[in-house]
């Protein structure tokens, strides 16, 4: 089997590539010029230089391949202009889908996001049937991912393209070229987070997501979406898990959501006055304090999604990032070593 992958240097992509190699696939990864390749260092794969803006180049890249896994996306971490989201997440996806269609790919897996569905409570978590409710966050990332998914679904319906969609929750684990969602873990152990807002999210080991994504090359049903979700944890529960894994109890002060939201609004106000982006704004505070729980039941039944404990993922994510960024003193590094090759 020959598989072409986009977003291969990212947290999920690097793990998918490892899973594909395990399964004996010949892998070609799209990489941008100057990309940080540390997440896929030493792996036996072909690199293909280019980006998502060039459909013809993408076509050249995936021509003759059996599968395409489109895992590249502009993620919401750090400062991002609204246009970056539409360019990469919508236009980039359109280009990849069109290129794969022209190259007569047998199966494509499109990595969307759980945010394209409405989250629920712990008792009644969101499923693939829960309607999108993300406009209230006014987030370029969420809106662009939703629009892209709508477009892909419409294309599948129109042309019966062989595409399966997977919607991962918040992924934790090793090998990312930038920390992404694991940034929160790093902030926690650096004691940069002292307050704990209410709200909560679904967390999953990135390697479980990688396995389910590779499984959907053969097992998923075309035109279906699969939520790759595992553990519903409140912010406090997640913080406790991290401090538990790290072995150092750090007490976090519980703060009601409205205080965070007020700070977020202040951020917007400052941004309005200074005409500059502010890291913490109403969009991020609303997301942080929201409860957005999901069920990965359908993926577990149909795709064989593993849902291993998150503690392992937190441990391995920490170990990788500590090694990668030389974060803390050497004693800590020693107690957190894994094979980074």
């Amino acid at each position: 089997m020959k598989t072409f992958i986009t977003g291969g240097t990212g947290l999920l992509g690097a793990n998918i590539i490892r899973e594909l190699i395990l399964r004996g696939h010949k892998v070609k990864a799209l990489v941008r010029r100057g990309s940080d390749l540390s997440g896929i260092k030493g792996l036996d794969i072909d690199l293909f230089e280019g980006d998502l803006s060039d459909e013809q180049n993408l076509y050249k890249g995936c021509k003759g391949f059996d599968n395409v896994i489109h895992a590249a996306a502009q993620t919401p971490f750090g400062f991002t202009r609204f246009l970056d989201f539409t360019d990469t997440n919508i236009r980039g996806t359109q280009n990849m889908v069109r290129a794969a269609e022209r190259a007569n790919i047998t199966r494509m897996v499109y990595v969307s996001s759980c945010c394209t569905f409405g989250g629920g409570s712990k008792e009644c978590p969101g499923t693939e049937l829960s309607e999108f409710s993300g406009f209230r966050f006014n987030s370029g990332y969420i809106n662009s991912k939703y629009l892209a998914q709508q477009w892909v679904l419409a294309e599948i319906e129109k042309k019966r393209l062989p595409i399966v969609i997977v919607n991962p929750a918040i992924m934790i684990g090793p090998y990312g070229s930038h920390p992404g969602p694991c940034e929160m873990i790093l902030k926690l152990i650096r004691q940069q987070i002292r307050f704990c807002p209410n709200g909560g999210k679904n967390f999953i080991d990135v390697r479980d997501v990688a396995i389910a994504t590779c499984n959907s090359l053969t097992r998923g049903i075309i035109g279906e979406c699969y939520l790759l979700a595992a553990h519903n944890l409140s912010n406090a529960e997640f913080y406790n898990k991290v401090t538990g894994v790290f072995g150092k109890a750090g007490h976090k002060i519980a703060v009601p959501g409205f205080i965070f939201n007020t700070l977020g609004l202040t951020g917007n106000f400052i941004s309005l006055l200074t005409q500059k982006d502010v890291a913490f704004n109403y969009t991020s505070s609303r997301q942080l304090t929201s409860e957005s729980y999901f069920s990965g039941g359908k993926a577990a039944r149909v795709l064989g999604l593993p849902q291993l404990p998150i503690d392992n993922a937190i441990h391995d994510s920490l170990a990788w990032h500590i090694n990668k960024y030389n974060l803390i003193n050497n004693d800590l590094q020693a107690s957190f070593s894994i094979d980074s090759a």
């Binding site: 499923t127 693939e128 049937l129 319906e157 019966r160 049903i221 075309i222 359908k298 039944r301």
Partner: peptide, 14 residues
């Protein structure tokens, strides 16, 4: 071709 069968399965399951 609209995956109606899958929708029915999910509704039955849930």
């Amino acid at each position: 071709g609209r995956n109606l069968h899958q929708l029915c399965e999910e509704l039955t399951y849930l």
